[in-house]
């Protein structure tokens, strides 16, 4: 097993863990951390699977990852800005949290 494949496998596991965390948590900040972990996993897969070129990593894959990181930063920033305004407006930043829903059994 090459080290590149190791990155790809680690990335695949990170994606699955991030996805689980994103679905299990309700607080927006936690969800955003989970989203960024998922994103990191995808970048590892992208780099690990990129066609090899001797000892140097594929420059196109590196450029795609840089672009992807900036896009993830922009998305995180937007979500945080929206969450802050929601908090100011008196809303619950725990989306779909049981305490903010009336149709949940666990509330009793």
């Amino acid at each position: 097993m090459t080290s590149a494949l190791g990155y790809a496998i680690a990335g695949a596991l990170l994606v699955a863990m991030g996805l689980a965390a994103m679905l299990l948590h309700h607080h927006l900040v936690r969800r955003l951390i989970a989203f960024n972990i998922m994103g990191g996993g995808v970048f590892l897969v992208l780099l690990g699977l990129a066609p090899g070129h001797g000892e140097q990593a594929d420059p196109v894959a590196q450029a795609l990852i840089l672009t992807g990181i900036v896009v993830a930063v922009a998305a995180t920033g937007l979500a945080l800005a929206l969450a802050r305004r929601l908090h100011q407006a008196g809303g619950d930043v725990r989306l779909d949290h049981p305490s903010s829903r009336e149709d949940d059994d666990d509330q009793k």
Binding site: L5, A8, I9, G11, A12, L13, V15, A16, M17, L19, A20, L23, L24, V45, G48, L49, P51, G52, H53, D58, P59, V60
Partner: peptide
């Protein structure tokens, strides 16, 4: 959710291990 994500993780690991990569012509 945990079970579903485990399945997703295993499927992804299966996928990345079985990639038959092409020649690195783009890097060239």
């Amino acid at each position: 959710i945990v079970a579903g994500c485990t399945v997703v993780g295993l499927a992804l690991v299966y996928a990345v291990v079985n990639v038959q990569g092409p020649a690195p012509d783009l890097a060239l």
